[in-house]
Amino acid sequence: MTKRPEKVADQDLVKVLAREVVHRVAPGELRTFRFTSEAYFADPRRALKGDRASDGVVGSGVTEVVEALTPVVLAVSSEVALYLAGLYAVRGASRAGRAASEAVRRLIRARSDDDAPGAQGPILELRTAEERHEVRRIVEEVMARNGYAEELAREIADALTEAGPEAGSEDP
């Protein structure tokens, strides 16, 4: 089972990765990304709990559920970053903390500000099918643990890895 981190050492890395995912799957939340990410890192459990309760106007008979994706995308990104940093720390025994984070940062496909939401291609340029599979598993686990639909988990996993669990090239 994946760790459930309260905080991640390299919050900047998590934010970079999460921003790319939000740009792809919930671009309307980019306006509030900074505020939401600050709230998430201050108290991840509270941010993940969010405002899933109804927020109806008294006496109106109208109830609206307010649910932002950014907090769960930050949770997903935290766990994916931890997995990849651990993987790269093991691969290069001399690499410690910051160097592993830099190795992970290089896996994030740069997006230009001109890229439209829904841009094609993976956010992470993973090297092996095993890495893609594990990232997808982490996404599905975190999303399920937080009560999100499988379809949304697949959309986020596709954005991170490619359009499907077995897409892309195999090990060189």
Rank of each mutant, 00 (worst) to 15 (best):
A9Q: 13
L107Q: 11
F35T: 14
E141N: 07
R34W: 01
R127P: 00
Y83P: 01
D10N: 15
G59N: 04
R136A: 15
E170L: 06
E20I: 00
E20H: 14
L74D: 09
V57F: 10
A9V: 12
E125G: 03
A144Q: 12
R46P: 01
R24W: 08
G147N: 10
V14N: 06
A9F: 06
A103I: 02
P122S: 15
L124C: 03
Y83E: 06
D55N: 13
A99Y: 07
A100N: 02
D12M: 14
A103M: 09
A18H: 04
R137S: 10
A159C: 07
A85E: 15
P117W: 05
E166S: 04
V90K: 10
V142H: 04
Y148D: 05
E151K: 15
V22Q: 01
T32C: 00
A99S: 11
N146A: 08
T32S: 12
E141D: 14
L152G: 03
L126E: 09
L160I: 01
H23W: 15
V16T: 14
R98M: 10
A116C: 00
E125D: 10
T128A: 05
R4L: 11
G121E: 00
A159D: 03
N146G: 00
M143H: 02
R91W: 12
Y88A: 02
A93N: 09
V142W: 01
P172K: 12
A100Y: 00
L84H: 05
